[in-house]
Design a protein around this nucleic acid. Sequence first.
DNA 1: TTGACATGTCGGAATGTTTAGATGTATGAC
DNA 2: GTCATACATCTAAACATTCCGACATGTCAA
Lengths: 88, 88
Amino acid sequence: MAAECLRTIAHPCRLRIIEILLKEERSVGELAEACGIPSNMASEHLRLLKDRGLLNSRRDGRKIYYWVAEPALAMIMNCVGKKFICKD
Amino acid sequence: MAAECLRTIAHPCRLRIIEILLKEERSVGELAEACGIPSNMASEHLRLLKDRGLLNSRRDGRKIYYWVAEPALAMIMNCVGKKFICKD
DNA sequence: TTGACATGTCGGAATGTTTAGATGTATGAC
DNA sequence: GTCATACATCTAAACATTCCGACATGTCAA
């Protein structure tokens, strides 16, 4: 259901994560720092996004890198962030 | 905040309401019937959407008609519904 | 004014989400 | 092997959302 995926995206940390990952892949620790949250919370957000097929991940040594798996996210983020919807 | 507005949209009934209102304005009762929910719940959903500036309303006799106030909703719905994101 | 209709608002129960801390697992360095 | 690092998982508390019934408001018609 579309509503479920929108809810998944609709969280400040997850929007920030998606925004970053649209540029390039990142590790959990990097994303956690960028969002100002502990890494276990970042991990939880990433799990939610990955469970819905929005992200993919790969391990490289001790780190795990995530990237955007769903191209539509770029369009959604373009709508959301660029000029639309509840700009402050 | 963008996340807040996305959360507002991210509900099955509210997505349906937006989808209908993108075509033409409708009364609360019509929307409630279309969503299969009681009219007081439709009224509540409409209030949430209106409070964030996504809808507008006008009274006509006893009925109150709502329509889409935020043009970006058409683009968002186009992304969401047409081919992207968690299609079943 | 009264009654019926359309909508809005107010509780509160049920449910879902977010967060934090503690613990668990996998990897590389030594 | 031990240790530290990077990440994941579990649990429970705190918080927010959803839904429903009951009641309130506002309008029209008679």
